[in-house]
């Protein structure tokens, strides 16, 4: 399974967390499409805690964390 965590405004009308079967998805963008998340709304994609791009591969047991633009300090 792939764990997908959504944060901030990406949670609006969606769940906070999804567990998806790994075999259905090749890259992060496939997951965006499955969850109906426009790619331009995702500012930061973390795969297992590291910054990645939408076309980067996903595999079983990965944890994805998706954020819209955020800042602070």
């Amino acid at each position: 399974m792939i764990e997908v965590r959504l944060f901030a405004t990406l949670r609006e009308n969606r769940e906070k967390i999804y567990f998806l079967p790994a075999e259905n998805f090749h890259c992060a963008l496939d997951i965006y499409n499955h969850l109906n998340i426009p790619a331009d709304e995702v500012s930061t994609l973390l795969i297992n805690g590291f910054h990645k791009k939408p076309h980067d591969e996903v595999k079983d047991n990965d944890i994805l964390a998706l954020f819209p633009p955020v800042g602070g300090g």
């Binding site: 965590r5 944060f7 901030a8 405004t9 930061t44 973390l46 805690g49 590291f50 964390a65 954020f67 819209p68 633009p69 955020v70 800042g71 602070g72 300090g73």
Partner: peptide, 18 residues
């Protein structure tokens, strides 16, 4: 959007997930 909606507290999850 980010700062007005959630304040600086919006950082908790991104920093933790990193």
């Amino acid at each position: 959007q980010g700062l007005p909606t959630y304040g600086t507290a919006v950082l908790v999850n991104i920093i933790n997930n990193t």
